[in-house]
Design a protein around this nucleic acid. Structure first.
Ligand SMILES: [Zn+2]
Ligand SMILES: [Zn+2]
Ligand SMILES: [Zn+2]
Ligand SMILES: [Zn+2]
Lengths: 156, 156
DNA sequence: CTTGCAAATGACACTCATTCCCAAATATTG
DNA sequence: CAATATTTGGGAATGAGTGTCATTTGCAAG
């Protein structure tokens, strides 16, 4: 068990191992993995979709709003959490791709809900190559792509 | 010349014909194509990239902020303008796809600038099919996809 | 187990992008 | 020229997100 092996969703030790990874990553940046930060990670790990700050606080009312925002920011900058701008009133947060795996989103333009989806590797490869080609022509340095489907969810 | 024929960028009558289309579209929704709204469209048509509200007002200082925001909203709801949420401080606006053509974006995560890019039809077709397949499995009704490359622009 | 120090907390104040309000201006109809 | 409906724009209001700071907590050295 090295600090670089990835936890596998479904594994019984998923949460425990994930906390070890995250704690180590934060320690490298002189940050502490405090209970508030652990609570944020657990809330996001238990949800199966990106959450807004109100969602997160509702899921764990012990969390103070200002601390939650501040800690989400720390975790985003540490690469543990990813921030999504979907156009609704609130920013959404989810675990970063090293933890959740690369994926994309269904975004409901009526209610603002977001659901994770996974595309086939053939699509991912073609998309990544096409984008890299274009980026290199313009001097743009790619970091990651986002691919979302906007529409109406089943409930709307 | 029907109300449905699309103006072609590069055409000399591009702007004039576009204004006709937009005026007709607004009229259908009992909205007037006032000079303030025409100015917004012209500013966006002359820029070759999405603009924020400060960008727009800087490009045409006659525009009042509150009216510009209100008219952008009218034009977005009328399908003339598209609103982009890229994660920076300000929302970006660009002409809608019926006017600009379907395309995607390079988004600089440092300075927030956005540049339009066009992908090959093979990629578009594969992406659309993959997304449609997934959407139909979840009862999601697709409207459009967005595909952006995030990274650092040449200036950053 | 202290003690000292740096990091973290949380209540609250604050910022600022965007929206709301409303009286004045403008367009449309006849 | 009315009469009516829409639009305008200055400024007030809203609210998501950030900053402040006194207090608390976690960690390490002794
Ligand atoms: Zn929905
Ligand atoms: Zn996701
Ligand atoms: Zn840039
Ligand atoms: Zn664009």
């Amino acid at each position: 068990m090295t600090a670089e092996s990835l936890p596998v969703p479904g594994d019984e030790d998923y949460l425990a191992e994930m906390h070890l990874h995250i704690g180590a990553r934060l320690a490298r940046q002189e940050h502490r993995y405090t209970s508030g930060r652990r609570q944020l990670v657990e809330v996001l790990a238990q949800a199966n979709q990106p959450m807004t700050l109100p969602d997160i606080v509702a899921a764990d009312p012990d969390l103070a709003q200002s601390s939650a925002y501040r800690n989400l920011d720390v975790l985003v900058r540490s690469g543990v959490i990813r921030r999504l701008s979907a156009g609704g009133d609130h920013t959404h947060f989810e675990l970063a791709e090293p933890l959740l795996g690369h994926h994309h989103h269904l975004i409901c333009i009526r209610c603002g809900s977001i659901e994770d989806i996974h595309l086939g590797s053939d699509v991912e490869i073609l998309v990544d190559q096409s984008l890299s080609d274009i980026a290199s022509q313009t001097g743009f340095t790619p970091i990651h792509h986002s691919l979302d489907l906007h529409g109406h969810c089943a409930d709307c």
